[in-house]
């Protein structure tokens, strides 16, 4: 029984990692309906910025927690900058074009940013210092829940709640929702749509940076390509939860994190009830995608997405 519990917790932690990246993804999508393929790259740049900060402050004698906070802030600031610049250069001129043009522009941006970091930094995997300190109170259960796991779980829940409240309650959030519903109408009502979209990119990219620094600290190493797989999984999670929906991104991430381990869980379950069926872990990603397809066939707008209303 303990095995299943451990599997569940491990799955939820992985899910929280996906959610953390998916939140920014889904937010940008919610406002301008663009699958921002370069989001994973922003996440990677956040991790590298964090690394640079950690490297610069490593000898300063600051406590690790202090370095972590500075790394997070620096990562968020610079990633917000990258996000805004990217939007200005690659997406804004295409706002009136067909929906697929910005998608291709995003793919180009993603290739560009990957190679930019490859050339500016290195092609190798570089060690990322463990910026999240070991918490004393977690010692007894540290094999179940490490301190980085806890931090990631807490931060992604906080981000989800914060983001939801921000969009529900603040003036800017209202402007965002209006822009998401109808850009032209929002503009007529005096909302500066360009500013709202820039802001969306800023927030989304800053969130990616939080993910980048925390997850890099969790896995202990980064290279220029980590954004690709992370972006793909986050995109999957966002769609699974209903793209554009913020609680959906969280839920989608968690479901994906647990579902990915179905091969292991099922194999163990079959062994327990005496059946000799082994589903190799090799098919982990395939199982996750199969599940995604199944869920979307029965709920075509994702778990928490609102079904699109057909206007005639």
């Amino acid at each position: 029984m303990e095995f299943y519990l451990e599997m569940l917790i491990a799955g939820l932690i992985r899910g929280a990692i996906y959610s953390l990246i998916a939140l920014g993804y889904t937010m940008v999508y919610g406002i301008i309906e663009l699958i921002n393929f370069a989001h994973g790259e922003i996440y990677m740049i956040g991790a590298f910025t964090g690394l640079v900060v950690a490297g610069l402050l490593g000898a300063s004698g600051l406590p690790t927690l202090g370095i972590l906070v500075i790394a997070l802030v620096a990562g968020m600031v610079f990633c917000a900058g990258y996000g805004v610049t990217m939007e200005k250069v690659a997406y804004k001129p295409l706002r009136k074009a067909s929906r697929l043009s910005p998608l291709i522009s995003a793919i180009g941006m993603s290739i560009f940013l990957q190679n930019y970091v490859l050339l500016a930094q290195t092609s190798d995997f570089v060690p990322f210092p463990r910026l999240i300190p070991e918490f004393k109170f977690l010692e007894p259960i540290s094999h179940l829940l490490g301190s980085s796991d806890l931090v990631i779980l807490v931060v992604s829940s906080l981000v989800m709640v914060g983001l939801t409240l921000f969009i529900r309650l603040t003036r800017l959030g209202k402007a965002m929702r209006a822009t998401a519903q109808n850009q032209k109408m929002a503009m007529l009502l005096g909302i500066d749509v360009n500013q709202v979209i820039s802001l969306t990119f800023m927030i989304g990219s800053a969130l990616a940076a939080i993910g980048g620094v925390l997850i890099a600290s969790h896995s202990g190493q980064i290279n220029f390509y980590i954004g690709f797989l992370a972006g793909l999984k986050a995109f999957t999670a966002a769609v699974l939860g209903g793209i554009g929906s913020i609680p959906g991104a969280m839920l989608g991430g968690l479901v994906l994190g647990v579902a990915e381990n179905l091969p292991i869980i099922l194999s163990a379950f079959f062994a327990d009830i005496g059946l000799n069926i082994d589903i190799p872990n090799d098919y982990k990603d395939a199982v996750a995608f199969c599940l995604l397809i199944l869920i979307l066939i029965f709920r075509p707008s994702g778990l928490l997405g609102r079904p699109a209303i057909k206007k005639v």
Partner: peptide, 21 residues
């Protein structure tokens, strides 16, 4: 050499900007 994919990515963006249709 090493710059070719960087330039390819940038070119993809530029081509989209100049001929979005």
């Amino acid at each position: 050499a090493d710059y070719r994919m960087l330039i390819f990515g940038a070119a993809l963006v530029l081509m989209m900007l100049f001929r979005p249709e």
